[in-house]
Amino acid sequence: MGTGAVPDAAAVGDSHAALLRDVMDRIGDKWSVTVICRLDAGPLRFNALKRATDGITQRMLSATVRRLERDGLISRTVEPTTPPRVEYALTARGRSLHGVLAGLVDWTERNLDDIRRDRAAYDEAGSRARSSAGSSPGGAAASWPRPSSASSPRPSAARPASTAAPPNPPTPASGSNARCGASAPTTSTCTTSTGPAPRCPST
């Protein structure tokens, strides 16, 4: 009995899942689908297949037929002519896949108008929602006016303590012992040592 290592179940599962994703990517690729559909009518040479596959470049077509040939979906036949003649045709597996794709195309044709209408309704609803959000006060597009420099009060700088000198003391009146305030009102009287004196002149 052999003693070979038993493959890990998780590794086998991961490999199967990876292959499944790769094949699904091939089936879902638009150029692969188009080439399979074009070859359903019969074998085609490379240039004829390129003309039938509108929009595909020569480099993309070369890569697409190589992948399809590797998966066994199409065959490549080279005839020994000058120059060599290369034809591509669907294999039995490719024809079975074409039957599935034809059903998918039919489903798309039946639902195309409804899909177009639903897309338009969805896009219109999204546009209205964005417009409503932009015009609302809390929306992303709302902007609040900033006060101008002319209307916004500026903070006043702190003023230093006053260092002005105190007022000068009153100057004695000329010719008497009276003392009068420098800013005394015009009705104030001066007092002398000998009695009331005449009113002080207005300052």
Rank of each mutant, 00 (worst) to 15 (best):
G138F: 02
K50P: 02
L101P: 05
L68R: 01
V23L: 13
G139D: 10
L49F: 00
A89P: 03
T163V: 09
T53I: 04
V105R: 13
G4F: 01
P145N: 10
A125G: 11
K30H: 12
G13H: 02
V65L: 11
V86R: 03
D25T: 14
T163G: 09
T191R: 12
G28S: 07
R146Q: 06
V33C: 15
N47P: 08
R66E: 14
S151K: 10
I74G: 03
R67N: 09
A129L: 07
P172C: 02
D113K: 12
P160H: 04
G28A: 04
G42N: 13
L90Y: 02
L112F: 09
R154F: 00
P147D: 01
T191P: 00
K30T: 11
A9V: 13
P167A: 02
N168R: 15
D123I: 13
P196G: 01
R85I: 03
V6S: 10
P160Q: 08
T189F: 04
R154K: 07
A140C: 05
D114T: 15
R117S: 08
D118H: 08
T186E: 14
E87A: 11
R95T: 15
T108C: 01
G181S: 12
D40G: 12
E124M: 08
H98M: 10
Q58G: 05
T187V: 00
R26F: 04
A48Y: 07
T3S: 13
